[in-house]
Amino acid sequence: MKIVNIVIAIAAGLIVLLGYFFNSPGLHELRSPLLDWAVTLSGIAGLVAILNLVFGVHLKRLRENHPKKGFSVVILISFAVTLIAGVFLSPASEGFQKLVTRVQVPIESSLMAVLAITLVLAALKILQRHRNWMGFVFFLSVIFFLVLNSGVLAFTSEIPFLRDILSGLHQIPVAGARGILLGIALGSLATGIRVLIGTDRPYNG
């Protein structure tokens, strides 16, 4: 069984990967269904995760009389109401979409707003927690880019020297970001190749 899984993973992966480098109609014919099936399976995997959350975690809490079952009750009721409304109204209906836009958006946006104050409080203690030269550079960088984002330094546009300096300072994160992106790319490349050659088998459980 495990060998079958490995063969499926490697074969499907190689066919899709080759399609990036070779433009062949035959390869395209093989590649398209694989991508389509993978898209479908991704959706089903998300459904499995949600069902596990609802039935495997919160419903189980109700059955086991967990201390936090009140929280689970709210979740299960809201899940049931939303599911029934969605099945009857369909996702395209405006009424059903208001359930998201008028419930989920206010709550999550408010959470983000509260997070702003928490982030500011945490930022006050940057140098208290990281008292080294790297923390100091980070501290100065945060302040500079906050001021830059606010647009207060717009007056410098009329001073060429300051304008060039600010422009250069504005470009410095690009170099660092490029290095970070290259590092992420190399890491994901290594991970992907390990899966394609069968070294890593996360699907075998």
């Binding site: 500011v120 140098l127 945060v142 984002n149």
Partner: peptide, 20 residues
């Protein structure tokens, strides 16, 4: 937006100075 960002920048600067 501008006022709140400036305020946050000032607060962070003040916090850093106090920490030092």
């Amino acid at each position: 937006y501008q006022l709140s960002l400036l305020l946050v920048a000032v607060l962070i600067f003040a916090g850093g100075v106090v920490s030092l």
